[in-house]
Design a protein around this nucleic acid. Structure first.
Lengths: 370, 370
DNA sequence: ACCGCAGACTAATACGTTTTAGTTCTCAAG
DNA sequence: CTTGAGAACTAAAACGTATTAGTCTGCGGT
């Protein structure tokens, strides 16, 4: 009983360029590592390269015993098909691209992004798919990247952030035939599958709550007006003007804490002062609370504060900030699931609605005049 | 003068599998897109595929005029070399991998990560390199991913986070011959180039400051003790015990806001109570401040608070938290620069020291007993 | 007038897989 | 005994580029 049961008789002249094979099947550290190829696995398993390919891609055509043997040999040598070679044959890259057109530094400040990214990442890596992240300066650069990646065949799918009104990107990606999912659509038909949140209903929820407390004059520190979700929130506000008899002033910002702070200052210095402020993001709400405290405006005594997004930033300060909360992480996983579906089936575009955020009441809101 | 000046006489039987070429050089939308190949560019530019390759890789061997013509044709048709095919020829993937072994949800909570990631990303994308991000459950899974990526030839480089004491990963990556840079080393020789921060000096700076204010009994909410940077901070504390005559109690946590809060509760309930608390992260410091306020422990009246990391979380609360500040974004770019160097030159490993954080005094610290 | 040489360019091969089109071989049915 | 079908497996042809080893041209030097 020779020790090399599995190994077929070795032919010394078999592979032309094979390095010193003095000690086969031993991953000796020290010598030149000399990348393994499917040929090597085939040789050691006593089959052809085709069999190795069939085994690794779970295709019919070989017996279970052979498949098992091949996989075991590969496992022992830590061999895997070379990505580039596989991808060359039309296989998937197993890469999803995310391009974000914002100043790189803001990425670290926005809990929303980080959470969605985590959710996306988590769901995708379950399928062995990695995310490729790129931060660019502006929308123009973003489009250029999409074109490049499409030409290079770099990614299998894309996630689109910050959908704007009259956004050209969905049509571009549809034309380029790249599977993609847009986050933040408005529910109306798009050339792309989109995941959207009913910002209108969410904002209305806040307004009804504040109206119920007795607030009549309300400030609104809004985000970038060009974004579709901002637009929907503003529409809700316009509607509430009539239905709830509210007097609301919106100040547009770029979502940064700096502009959130200055917008707050502006609102608080206006006379007569509003009795409540709604912020379109948690970062701005937290910054706004800081400004109020600094100006000796009591929260919620003098002014109530509500944030449209919830995170550690709204939960930690004192008073903690009343906020619309949604599972941002789950929003990421939902988007990922939808993207996986698009990548696999290439279905007709559709709009998937994520759960509407719920209002969590905290210490930053009260009836006006105590 | 025929209109197709540049185009050589077309041979209908030239390319065997070529689809309908009724309208060459017109990117008509509607028909099957039929991926372009270097052959097509070569044909339209009136050169061979080799020339196209030389043009795109900026290699000598063709005239400037020809090069320009080729690039122009490619530009017009939005053609680029197919990544997989290029990579197959030993070229770079232009991908850097980042694997993080933490619960996915914490990624969104940690400003530190997000900032470093932004910095890394920004520097790398300058070179046309994308980052591939993967979040895994534990260190074991992380190592498995490295092995897989190495076998698949997926990435050109790696960034290692959270270097632990006796970390096996540097040696593994060195064995696998993957260019990598570790973030958070201790300055001692490693099989890998590392970027490190002098946590010892930084912690000493905090301790000297607190001692100068008159604090004698100090609490320390530390991070994961297995990490090298945590270890160094603890060493500084041990040293200060003698040199500064301080009495310091450390409580270990996992860096989460939850454990940061409970550690704070524990410290504040201990009698006699310490007069200052040092937190190993901004998240925990912010959570701790919340707990103190909740327990009606005045900051800085009853207890001073210092954070080892600075971010929006320490800047926004009231009082704002005294913190060690460093440009985390720049730490990311520095790491990226180092990695690029390693990828290009494969130099001997070295330890690169990042600037030592500086203490920013804010409202959360004061002398004990007012 | 010839040689040699550099520059511009091309044909052919290599990269490491996957896939297609076979080739055996076994077994059951006629 | 012959035939056909199917399973197990293999040889060879892709995939789209980069590189190597040429080929061809024109030109300066002797």
């Amino acid at each position: 009983m020779p020790p090399n049961d599995q190994v077929p008789p070795q032919d010394p002249a078999a592979s032309p360029g094979s390095p010193e094979c003095s000690e086969p099947s031993e991953p000796s550290a020290g010598a030149a590592p000399a990348r393994l190829r499917s040929t090597d696995i085939a040789r050691l398993a006593g089959v052809s390269v085709s069999a190795v390919s069939l085994a690794f891609n779970a295709r019919p055509g070989i017996s279970d015993a052979t498949r098992k043997r091949i996989l075991q040999v590969a496992e022992e040598l830590n061999w895997r098909p070379h990505r580039a070679a596989s991808a060359l044959k039309g296989a998937n890259n197993d890469v999803v691209g995310i391009v974000i057109a914002r100043p790189a530094r803001t990425l670290g400040v926005e809990p929303f992004f980080a959470h969605v990214l985590s959710g996306l990442q988590s769901r995708l890596s379950n399928e062995g798919i990695a995310t490729q992240l790129l931060i660019v300066e502006d929308a123009q650069a973003e489009v250029a990247v999409y074109r490049r990646w499409a030409a290079e065949n770099r990614v299998d799918g894309l996630v689109l952030f910050d959908l704007a009104v009259d956004d050209a990107r969905p049509q571009l990606l549809a034309d380029l035939r790249i599977p993609a999912v847009a986050l933040g659509g408005h529910g109306a038909p798009l050339p792309l599958t989109s995941v959207w949140v009913d910002d209108h209903a969410a904002m209305t929820r806040i307004l009804e709550y504040l109206a119920g407390l007795g607030h009549r004059s309300i400030g609104h520190v809004s985000g970038v007006p060009a974004y579709q979700h901002t637009r929907r929130r503003l529409q809700a506000i316009a509607g509430a003007h009539d239905t709830l008899d509210l007097d609301i002033v919106s100040v547009a910002t770029d979502y940064s804490d700096i502009q959130g702070a200055s917008a707050t200052r502006q609102l608080l210095e206006t006379s007569p002062r509003c009795t409540a402020i709604i912020y379109d993001s948690d970062v701005m709400a937290a910054a706004g609370l800081g400004v109020a405290t600094e100006m000796a405006v009591r929260v919620p005594g003098d002014v109530s504060i509500v944030s449209f997004d919830d995170s550690i930033l709204t939960q930690l300060p004192h008073p903690p900030i009343t906020a619309l909360t949604r599972d941002t992480y789950a929003l990421g996983t939902l988007t990922a699931t939808e993207l996986l579906h698009v990548m696999a089936e290439r279905p007709e575009p559709r709009a998937v609605q994520a759960p509407t955020p719920e209002l969590v009441l905290r210490g930053s809101t009260a009836s006006p005049g105590r």
